[in-house]
């Protein structure tokens, strides 16, 4: 199979280029394995990866124009030649490795942790199965960045718009029956950019490798804001 990968080494190159490799495929082979075969031919080819099963979120990349995790993307699903590029809109450090600092800053900005004001009980804080079910589809995010780097609003305003991944987490804590900081969280999301730059383009939903729905979460935040306002 012919795979064209994005190459850029800042110590050597003045501009990026695409490089072609021919990879022998095996049944059930994932893109990550093909990239490892390329690394065996050229150890200078850089990309992040680790768990190989879609839970660590290291190997987000843009493949044939779509963001995905290489380790759970079967080669059989891809059309040749496969074009592998770094996640869009982020500064490239080297080859497929991008600088995710801004993405992480936006994540940290939504106070992604449970805030509890009452004294803690000796045992667990009770939560009904129905209340717990509201967190399904939210807590599973692996911070791979596929969504935010597919979002045109994030491309334009990565410093001001939180982006879908961070907003999904903002809703994860708003939706948690145990959290006691709803008002502060909503106040912090107010303004034209942080939340409201989402124009429901839904690229985030299309690419999420965990099949999560940030657009829906953003909709819930907006509804809750409206509820609080009236």
């Amino acid at each position: 199979m012919k795979i064209r990968v994005y190459r850029f080494n800042p110590e050597r190159d003045t501009k990026p280029r695409m490089q072609s490799f021919e990879v022998a495929t095996r049944p059930g082979m994932m893109l990550r394995e093909a990239l490892l075969d390329i690394r065996a031919l050229d150890e200078s080819f850089g990309f992040r990866h680790s768990c190989g099963e879609g839970v660590c979120g290291s190997d987000g990349m843009n493949v044939n124009g779509v963001n995905c995790l290489a380790c759970i993307t079967p080669l059989a699903d891809l059309t040749e030649p496969v074009e592998v590029r770094p996640l869009p809109g982020r500064p490239v450090i080297r080859d497929l490795i991008v600088d995710m600092s801004q993405f992480y800053l936006q994540y940290k900005a939504v106070q992604p942790y449970l805030i509890r004001k009452e004294p803690l009980p000796e045992q667990e804080i009770p939560q009904t199965p129905a209340e717990r079910d509201r967190l399904d589809g939210l807590y599973e995010c692996i911070l791979c960045g596929c969504c935010s780097t597919a979002c045109p609003s994030f491309w334009w305003n990565p410093d001001k718009f939180h982006g879908p991944a961070a907003l999904l987490q903002a809703w994860r804590f708003l939706a948690d029956s145990r959290d006691q900081a709803t008002d502060e969280r909503l106040d912090a999301l107010d303004g034209p950019y942080k939340l409201f730059r989402c124009h429901s383009i839904m690229n985030c939903v299309a690419v999420c490798p965990k099949e999560l729905n940030p657009t829906k979460a953003i909709g819930h935040i907006k509804e809750l804001m409206l509820e609080k306002a009236v």
């Binding site: 992040r48 680790s50 768990c51 099963e53 660590c56 979120g57 290291s58 992480y104 692996i142 911070l143």
Partner: peptide, 10 residues
């Protein structure tokens, strides 16, 4: 690795 990529995640 970035902390949430540590293998406890699996």
């Amino acid at each position: 690795v970035f902390p949430t990529r540590s293998h406890t995640v699996a």
